[in-house]
Design a protein around this nucleic acid. Structure first.
Length: 486
RNA sequence: GGCCCCGUCGUCUAGCGGCCUAGGACUCUGCCUUCUCAAGGCAGCUACGAGGGUUCGAAUCCCUUCGGGGCUACCA
């Protein structure tokens, strides 16, 4: 790897929405590129045309943008080694496939899928490592002609020489694979389209990628990539360096699914998780800055991140911890930032339409709820009472204010509040405490709960007096009267 | 089955031969604070998968074993 500048790539195959495992990989790729002052390259691996869709590709691009993982080369931003969609590089792969064929590094294989499956089945029964048996490795011209006459299609298969492949994984150390367990593999389908095995290796070389940080599931395919580099004539010193990241698993079982936390990142966005919180949390999965540091910014991540500190063992995804971090991040927001993040949720929930008066009120109310929520989607729920015109008390709270004690509290409150000259939360609190707590001798909890239900409609609300101040005198009195009539 | 990877509290982790009667965070429990809910503060519960070595000394090194996972496609 010498001293050349670092270039890291994130190359997902968008066969669905990016999930947290993909994101974690992207995050580490990005962090490593930024840490080293290198280049972050984003490539779309869409050689699996039946499973990859344009929608998923677009979603992947949007997701990276939303997370703040900006790339230096790739879709939308371009670069000197494009195009960055593999579907637009087909001629390049065809060229290399032909070269490998010419060099006898690869050969045409005429075995049908059924025949191959039969071979594997027999191997499994015989307790032998399943894999291609080399049937078409050294076909004579007459055999080839015969197959062609049969109308058989042919895939291009890479010849794995005897021996073994050893490479140094930055996270796992030296890893070695005996070629007896790495069968000849397919580079090009019978229809002429390239496979991941070909495209990934060709692109990493052509795009001058120096570091491949990817999921652990690709570890055992590394010898195949290296085989392609060899066939391309690349000197070993110019091979990318590999680092296989541990998995992110679900809470209970192996793979992340909707069962244990949503797999799709879109869900987190809709729930109101901040990108910074997601990145912070994901950074802690399989990596640690040490020194008991946990709450870090994106900037600090790029400063501290090193591949050497990445673990080799898998981590389980824990929604609770993500929520805790999200709460921390929300509390760390300035009011203007908090406002910017909250507005879309309020509008989407139809709590406000977005007028400037509404926004002013939201801005005043936000400090009251900032330390009370863990996700942004709670904002509408908590502020709704300030904006609804046809106010109603929560069905399950009604019974708590219809007893005579509560009615007395509400009556007294109206009397006190009507006489208030200046409608500030300090004045409201002082007047109510004097009357309800000191004169009537009520417990604050009892007195204020009744009032809370009457004014906000719920037993749970932002701080009562501040809420009343924001609601306004008229609305408060009107709501209390309405509650009294229940 | 074969090949490969992995193994510290429930979870994420610190630890890289003595500082460890194993630290932090999240969760959970209790308490304090308190107008609800939170936030905050304090306290508590709980871990080196097992068995052998090496060593004066091991969570840290070696071996075995058990357990988990990945790959084994004309998916990536």
């Amino acid at each position: 790897m010498s001293t050349k500048a670092v270039k890291v790539r994130f190359a997902p195959s968008p066969t669905g929405d990016l999930h947290v495992g993909n994101i974690r990989t992207a995050l580490f790729d990005w962090a490593y590129a930024r840490h080293t002052g290198g280049v972050f390259l984003f490539r779309i691996e869409d050689t699996d045309t039946v499973r990859v869709t344009d929608e998923y590709i677009q979603a992947a691009i949007e997701t990276l943008k939303w997370l703040g993982l900006d790339w230096d080369e790739g879709p939308e931003v371009g670069g000197d080694h494009g195009p960055y969609l593999q579907s637009q590089r087909l001629d390049i792969y065809a060229e290399y496939a032909q070269k490998f064929l010419d060099q006898k590094d690869a050969y045409h294989c005429y075995c049908s899928p059924d025949e191959l499956e039969a071979v594997r089945e027999a191997q499994r029964k015989a307790n032998v490592a399943p894999g291609y048996n080399g049937h078409c490795r050294d076909l004579s011209q007459t055999q080839i002609d015969a197959y062609k006459a049969e109308g058989r299609g042919a895939v291009v298969r890479m010849r794995m020489p005897d021996g073994s492949t050893t490479f140094t994984d930055l996270i796992r150390g030296d890893v070695s694979f005996d070629h007896n367990f790495v069968p000849d593999f397919v580079l090009v389908r019978a229809d002429g389209s390239p496979l991941y095995t070909l495209a990934v290796a060709v692109d990493d070389i052509l795009m001058k990628v120096t570091h491949v940080l990817r999921g652990e599931d690709l570890l055992s395919s590394t010898p195949r990539q290296i085989r392609v580099y060899q066939a391309m004539g690349v000197a070993p010193a110019d091979y990318p360096v590999f680092a296989h990241l541990p998995f992110v698993m679900g809470t209970d079982n192996a793979k992340l699914s909707k069962r244990n936390g949503e797999a799709s990142i879109a869900w987190y966005r809709d729930m109101g998780f901040l990108p910074e919180a997601i990145c912070n949390y994901l950074a802690l999965l399989g990596w640690s800055p040490g020194d008991d540091v946990e709450n870090i910014t994106m900037k600090e991540l790029t400063q501290m991140f090193t591949v050497e500190k990445v673990h080799s063992s898998p981590a389980r995804f824990d929604m609770k911890k993500l929520e805790a971090i999200n709460g921390d991040k929300i509390r760390a927001l300035t009011i203007d930032e908090f406002l910017k993040w909250s507005l879309p949720f309020l509008i989407k929930a139809n709590v406000i339409q977005g007028s400037s008066q509404e926004i002013e009120l939201v801005k005043k109310a936000l400090p009251l709820i900032q330390e009370r929520i863990i996700v942004l989607s709670e904002v509408p729920k908590m502020l709704k009472f300030l904006f609804i015109s046809n106010f109603e008390v929560d069905a399950d709270s009604v019974s708590k204010i219809t007893d005579s004690g509560s009615k007395e509290i509400l009556k007294r409150s109206i009397k006190e509040l009507e006489g208030l000259l200046q409608w500030s939360h300090e004045n409201i609190e002082a007047a109510l405490r004097a009357s309800l707590i000191e004169e009537l001798g009520l417990k604050p909890r009892i007195a204020f709960t009744a009032l809370r239900i009457a004014t906000t409609g719920s037993v749970i609300s932002p701080p009562l007096f501040e809420s009343m101040e924001l609601l306004g005198k008229e609305a408060c009195l009107s709501r209390i009267s309405t509650a009294l009539a229940l």
